[in-house]
C-alpha cells in the first residue's frame, strides 16, 4: 500500500461509529494510542463499542459471580481498567481474576489453599495464615519439610483462547528461610480424561527454578533478573519482585487454542537433595499472557 497521505485522508470521512468499530479490532493498548491522535479519534476510541469487545465475552457472568465488590463504572472502558487494576475473587475465593491491560486477556491466580501439597495436611510441616497483603483469605506457610511438592490444576477453558500463557509461582520468604537455594523442578502437563482413564500429554516445559538464588547464599538478596547465573541454563529461572510486593518465579509457558478442554497440571517439587527447607510463604500460582509484565 503506497504511503500517500492525501489519499489516506479518506479516514476522516468515516463516521465515528465506523472508526470505533475499526478500533475495536485492535487492542486495548492500540485504542489508548488512538485516543492521543486527535479529539475525534479519542471520542471513538473511548466508546463502549470498543471496550465491550476488549472485555471477555463472559464479563457479565464474571462480575456478577464475583465475591469482590466491583467499583461503580459508567463506561465499559472504566470497567475494563477496574478489572485490570483490582483482581476479582471468583469461584468462591479459590481463584482471582484480572485482565491484562495491553491485551484484555484473562489472568488467573489459584490460591495455595487449592494446591495439592505434600505433607500439607500436617501442621508440623505446613500451616495456613491470613496476611493483610494477600488477595486470598489464607496462604500456605512452609514450616519445615525435606520433601517439597505442590501441584496446582487449572481448567484450560477458563483461559483466553489463542494465547501463550506463562505460569508464575507467587511467594514470599520469611526472615528465617532456609534450604530453598537448591533448584526445584517445575513442570507443566496437559491432562485429559478419556473413557474414565487419564491421558497425560506432557508438555515440553520442565525447568529448574531457584526460589532463592544459589549464589546469594545467606545474604538473602533477591535478584531481579532472570537467568544469567553462572552454571545455569536458559531453562533455569530465578525470582523477581512484583508490583504488589510479592515475589514471583516463572515456571514455564504453554499455548491455549480455541476450544481447548483439559486440565493444566503444574508441579513444583524438590525431591532430590532432600535437605530441610523452611520459611516459604506461597500465595498461589498465576497464569497470564507471556511477554507482559
Amino acid at each position: 500500500m503506497a504511503d500517500e497521505n492525501s489519499e489516506n485522508s479518506r479516514f476522516n470521512l468515516l463516521p465515528e461509529g465506523c472508526i470505533a468499530n475499526i478500533i475495536s479490532f485492535t487492542s486495548p493498548k492500540d485504542a489508548c494510542t488512538a485516543a492521543a491522535v486527535s479529539v475525534g479519534l479519542k471520542s471513538a476510541a473511548e466508546s463502549d463499542t470498543v471496550w465491550e469487545r476488549f472485555l471477555p465475552p463472559d464479563y457479565v457472568e464474571i462480575v456478577s459471580g464475583s465475591s469482590s465488590p466491583v467499583a461503580a463504572y459508567s463506561t465499559k472502558k472504566e470497567l475494563f481498567f477496574s478489572l485490570c487494576d483490582s483482581p476479582l475473587l471468583v469461584d468462591g475465593g479459590k481463584l482471582s481474576l484480572r485482565l491484562d491491560k495491553s491485551t484484555g486477556k484473562k489472568c488467573y491466580m489459584l490460591c495455595s489453599r487449592q494446591f495439592q501439597i505434600a505433607w500439607g495436611d500436617n501442621l508440623m510441616y505446613w500451616t495456613w495464615s491470613s496476611l493483610p497483603d494477600s488477595r486470598f483469605a489464607e496462604v500456605a506457610e512452609l514450616q519445615s519439610v525435606f520433601w517439597l511438592g505442590m501441584r496446582a490444576i487449572f481448567q484450560a477453558e477458563l483461559l483466553s483462547p489463542n494465547t501463550n500463557y506463562a505460569a508464575y509461582l507467587v511467594f514470599k520468604l520469611m526472615e528465617d528461610h532456609e534450604g530453598l537455594d537448591c533448584p526445584s523442578k517445575a513442570s507443566i502437563k496437559f491432562v485429559r480424561e478419556k473413557n474414565g482413564s487419564v491421558i497425560e500429554k506432557v508438555d515440553k516445559t520442565i525447568s529448574n527454578v531457584y526460589i532463592v538464588p544459589r549464589v546469594m547464599g545467606r545474604r538473602r538478596r533477591i535478584r531481579r533478573t532472570r537467568g544469567g547465573l553462572p552454571g545455569t541454563t536458559p531453562n533455569d529461572r530465578v525470582s523477581r519482585v512484583r508490583s504488589d510486593g510479592w515475589l514471583e518465579i516463572e515456571l514455564g509457558d504453554f499455548f491455549i487454542c480455541e476450544g481447548d478442554k483439559f486440565d493444566i497440571q503444574i508441579d513444583v517439587s524438590e525431591t532430590k537433595h532432600l535437605n530441610w527447607k523452611r520459611g516459604l510463604i506461597i500465595e498461589g500460582i498465576e497464569l497470564r499472557p507471556k511477554e507482559v509484565s
Binding site: 489516506n8 485522508s9 485492535t26 492500540d30 491522535v37 486527535s38 479529539v39
Partner: peptide, 22 residues
C-alpha cells in the same frame, strides 16, 4: 485495524492523514 496495530501516535496521524487538533 491490522494497519494500526502497535503503531505510534505520529504514525497513525501520518498514515491516515489525521490532523492533530489537540
Amino acid at each position: 485495524a491490522q494497519v494500526m496495530e502497535k503503531k505510534s501516535v505520529g504514525w497513525v496521524r501520518r498514515k491516515f492523514g489525521i490532523e492533530n487538533d489537540y
